[in-house]
């Protein structure tokens, strides 16, 4: 394999990881703050993709790119207010059942509204084409996608680490009782985090609709690898999730590159197993008192 080819495969793998990242960041945030294991996260990704297909004829891809994630985020906040909120203090198995049910309801609702067959959708004309640098070739759309994802992840990092909002959220993850004792109600922060996390899943749906099949079960395809990313990365660590997502993408990509495509799915589970054996808190997991 030439260096240029290897580089391309590394880039392909990393970008695959970026898709997981957009899903996994929200999963990790929502779990860290409220203790909700959101199995419906994949469904929000699917809803984002379906909204994109439905809105494009009216707003164009650009309009859908803005409107769809915002709608999904609002939907997420509504669900946090009406449903998640009731389960913050109960046995996690209950919220697990709740979100499991939500995921099934959402998938079936998409099937009833839009039908089961795959919806037709393509890359918008202005973003089609390839970038050539010598022997190196890359899809223009994916380059744009990568930039958008990097901006989002950087924005989220800034929000969590450099703003007053982020300070409260991080304090809430570590010790919610102390935050309460200081007279800060976590409730609006919980809603905002649910909106952000679920909005990111919706954004992933928008970005992937042009290159993946848009079908009702598409959420299932991405949710399990996203969980693996969160487990490998470790709770409470922003960079843990980022590194884990890129690592999962990279390992998957290289496994395919070296001719073992059939093991690409099992490879990431094997990696999770190894990480759990040697670092039960995940690669960068912090010691969080209430999760021990």
């Amino acid at each position: 394999m030439t260096v240029s080819l290897l580089l391309q495969q590394v880039l392909n793998g990393l970008l695959d990881g970026v898709y997981y990242l957009l899903i996994a960041l929200g999963l990790s945030l929502i779990f860290s703050l409220g203790g909700i294991v959101n199995l419906a996260h994949g469904a929000f990704y699917a809803i984002g993709a379906y909204l994109t297909v439905a809105l494009t004829p009216h707003l164009g891809f650009g309009g859908a790119f803005v409107a769809a994630p915002i709608s999904v985020a609002l939907l997420g906040m509504a669900i946090e207010r009406t449903l998640f909120q009731r389960f913050y203090r109960s046995d996690p198995i209950l919220s697990l059942l709740l979100t499991f049910g939500l995921a099934l309801v959402a998938e079936q609702a998409l099937r009833m509204i839009f039908g089961a067959p795959t919806l037709s959708y393509s890359i918008p004309q202005e973003l089609r084409g390839q970038i050539f640098i010598g022997d190196f070739i890359y899809s223009r759309y994916r380059a744009v996608l990568l930039c958008i994802a990097v901006i989002c992840v950087a924005g989220l990092w800034f929000l969590l680490n450099r703003t007053a909002f982020g300070r409260v959220v991080r304090a809430g993850v570590q010790n919610p009782d102390m935050v309460g004792a200081l007279g800060i109600s976590l409730q609006p922060y919980m809603s905002a985090v649910a909106g952000l996390g679920i909005g990111l899943a919706g954004l992933a749906g928008v970005l992937l609709a042009p290159i993946y099949s848009v079908h009702p079960a598409m959420g299932q395809e991405i949710i399990t690898p996203a969980f693996v990313v969160v487990v490998i990365g470790g709770l409470g660590s922003f960079w843990g999730v980022v590194v884990a997502a890129l690592l999962v993408g990279l390992v998957k990509g290289l496994v395919v590159a070296f001719g073992f495509a059939q093991f690409s799915t099992s490879a990431i589970y094997l990696m999770m197993l190894l990480v759990l054996l040697f670092r039960p808190r995940g690669l960068f997991g912090e010691r969080i008192q209430r999760f021990e």
Partner: peptide
């Protein structure tokens, strides 16, 4: 612990 919650919940989630 305020919540009966641990890392295993996350694995159950996966």
């Amino acid at each position: 612990s305020r919540l009966k919650l641990n890392r295993r919940s996350l694995l159950k989630g996966a």
